Amino acid sequence: MQAVEILERLVGFPSVVGTPNGEIVGWIRHYLQSHGIVATEIAGPEGDRSNLFVTIGPRETPGYILSGHMDVVPAAEGGWSSDPFRLRAETGRLYGRGTTDMKGFLAVVLAAVPALAAARLRRPIHLAFSYDEEAGCRGVPHMIARLPELCARPLGVIIGEPSGMRAIRAHKGKAAARLTVRGRSGHSSRPDQGLNAIHAITEILACASAEAERLTQGPFDPVFEPPYSSLQVGTLKGGQAVNIIPDSCEAEFEARAISGIDPATLLAPLRAMADALPQRGFQSEWRELSAYPALSLAADAPLAHLLSELTGTEPLAAVSYGTEAGLFQRAGMDAIICGPGDIARAHRPDEFILASELLACQAMIEALARHCIA
């Protein structure tokens, strides 16, 4: 099957983040089996979704991982010109949810399987397909934990997120959390008899604003835009009516950290304030929504040099969006981003990838195969 045909199949699976992914996993496994390749299915604790790991070549020899996620963001927003889960081709563009982020990469990788299986690879090429990346990289840690028993330590991991087929060496880390505060309702004329949850959470919002301003003063890393870590309040919900004391309020916070800083530490002052609320009669619940570390691959790393050779261009220093690459690096593996498509087209109506971008990705994988044969 050609990459476009495979992409049509993959887009047809509405593998939205946070939902069961058995259908897309089953199709990929069957496709691999038809080419004599056995995939290891690594179930997550949710019980209804799985990662897939594949080795082509000698598993006892260090090789390279091609990594991507099977989930996509929802497509319920308006503005789509056609069914988002049905591939539409038009003047070199292939439209559909996930075409760029990142089923296009998966399709090219799967299309290369017959040739990789027929090649006499001296170094293996592994495929690592994860779930729920769009919810903060929730699936891939379960696969990374299993890698020591599945393969020799890889020489490098190529994350196929959309990068215009130019390798990227770094991105920020991220942590997100939801705080729920519960007080006591009552009539607004008797505030002495209630506990206003919005008032309580307002103090934490003020702290978040102050911390966000403080981070603009550094430390700095000039490869990023902006060159400092950041923090924001992303959502705020609470109250029923103006004359009712609000008994609950919820806020979501997000921090993005430059290399060398644990993003969770940026949220620590907010959590400390939340943990102190029960002393004043409130209930508080702090729930981590997502967390992944920054990626920082040295410019002179062998993997960076390899991607320069495979793509014919020098890697970019950094991007603003995050990926699973930092998790692989934290586990002791060099990682880099390189995949087809443009991140600016992701998470929006009429998402598309160019057929020419799929061909460029195919050329990179063919070059990697030659490298693993030499």
Rank of each mutant, 00 (worst) to 15 (best):
F13E: 04
F13M: 09
P20M: 02
N21G: 07
I24L: 07
I28F: 10
I28R: 09
H35D: 11
G36Y: 14
L52D: 08
G63T: 08
G63V: 10
Y64G: 10
S67T: 01
V72E: 07
P74I: 03
R93G: 05
L94W: 08
L106T: 13
A118D: 15
A119K: 05
L121P: 05
L121G: 08
P124M: 11
E133K: 01
E133P: 00
V140Y: 04
P141S: 08
H142N: 08
E149V: 05
E149K: 09
L150K: 03
C151L: 09
L155V: 02
I159K: 03
E161A: 02
E161P: 02
S163M: 02
A167D: 12
A167Q: 08
A170P: 11
K172S: 00
K172M: 01
K172L: 11
A177M: 02
R178I: 04
L179C: 02
T180Q: 14
R182Y: 08
G183C: 05
H187F: 14
S189M: 10
P191V: 10
D192Q: 13
A197M: 04
A197D: 06
H199Y: 11
C207N: 00
C207K: 04
R214W: 06
L215F: 13
P222E: 15
P226R: 00
P226C: 05
P226M: 05
S229Y: 13
S229M: 14
S229G: 14
I245C: 03
D247E: 13
D247I: 00
S248G: 08
A251L: 08
A257E: 02
A257S: 15
L266W: 06
R271H: 11
D275Q: 14
R280V: 03
S290V: 04
L295V: 10
S296A: 14
A298V: 00
P302A: 00
S308P: 02
G312K: 07
E324W: 03
F328W: 09
Q329S: 11
D334C: 01
G341S: 07
D342W: 01
I343H: 05
A346H: 02
Q362C: 13
I365V: 15
A374S: 14
